[in-house]
């Protein structure tokens, strides 16, 4: 009797599992209609300056925040900012718990398999950050090969580390947000951090992170930021149009100047 029940339970589980796999094929072609219907664009972000961070009143500000709000205003949508774990961003997107990834999101081929990118709007590099007291010790990529290097899990920084012959020999400390890398550094649990240059510029050497420096003698990969939508979505085209419009009328430059990153902005008029 017991055996029969166990077999029955297993059979039910197998049936449920196969039904689940069959229904897993979603249709994203009507993504724009989907967000218009609910009236909100849920934007997946992590908290980092100068892209998305909070002011003293707890309100989201930053270049990407204002950029997203401007685009959403044009599309007649309300921008909702949702903090996510950067490691699970693609799952969040697929499961529709967010509608796009818009947080200094670096374009690369691997990501293109899961995500539809808009036009690139900003250039970026990966910067190596160390404690000022270690600055003389770590001056080249080779000197970092036996160091402990912190980077955000699933980020372009990790890709840069894995793609470099010296850095890939180092011990990689994978953390859940870019700002955690800085904590790793000042607490001494990591020797170096690889993170977005745009972000490093706005934190390093200031306030609580005064005794950190960017190693300027190291050049890692050049890259570009874009906005990521669901694979096969029709939202990226709509947003592309608005982006070009906002570039041409100067709104984008104005926001970039506010956060001191106008030199990083790409020309979208072409």
């Amino acid at each position: 009797m017991k055996k029969k029940i166990v077999v029955a339970v297993l059979a039910v589980l197998i049936i449920v599992a196969s039904v689940l796999t069959l229904t897993a094929c979603n249709n994203n072609k009507k993504d724009f209609e989907y967000v218009t219907k609910k009236g909100t664009l849920v934007i997946g972000i992590t908290n980092f300056a100068p892209m998305n961070y909070k002011d003293d009143n707890g309100k989201w500000i930053g270049f990407d925040t204002e950029f997203a709000e401007a685009v959403c205003a044009e599309l007649g949508l309300k921008a909702v900012f949702q903090e996510i774990d950067w490691d699970t961003k693609e799952v969040e997107l697929k499961s529709k718990t967010i509608d796009c990834i818009w947080n200094g999101f670096t374009v690369n081929d691997e990501r293109k398999e899961n995500v539809d990118f808009t036009k690139s709007y900003m250039m970026n590099e990966q910067a190596v950050v160390v404690k000022a007291s270690n600055a003389s010790k770590y001056t080249s990529l080779e000197s970092l090969k036996s160091a402990k290097i912190a980077a955000e899990g699933g980020s372009a920084g990790v890709d840069a580390i894995k793609g470099d012959e010296y850095l890939k020999q180092a011990k990689l400390i994978s953390v859940s947000a870019q700002t955690d890398c800085l904590l790793e550094l000042i607490s001494g649990t990591s020797d170096a951090a690889v993170m977005d240059y745009v972000m490093a510029m706005s934190y390093v050497g200031k306030g609580d992170y005064a005794d950190l420096v960017i190693v300027e003698s190291i050049d890692l990969a050049y890259e570009e930021y874009a906005i990521g939508f669901r694979k096969g979505s029709n939202l990226d085209e709509k947003v592309n149009e608005v982006m070009v419009k906002l570039y041409k009328d100067g709104t984008l430059l104005e926001i970039a100047q506010k956060y001191d990153i106008e030199v990083q902005l790409l020309d979208l008029s072409k």
């Binding site: 229904t23 897993a24 979603n26 799952v91 697929k94 499961s95 529709k96 718990t97």
Partner: peptide, 13 residues
Amino acid sequence: VFYVPGLVFNYPM
């Protein structure tokens, strides 16, 4: 509980 409704049933949480 959080991801399955959206991923499998196209009914996001």
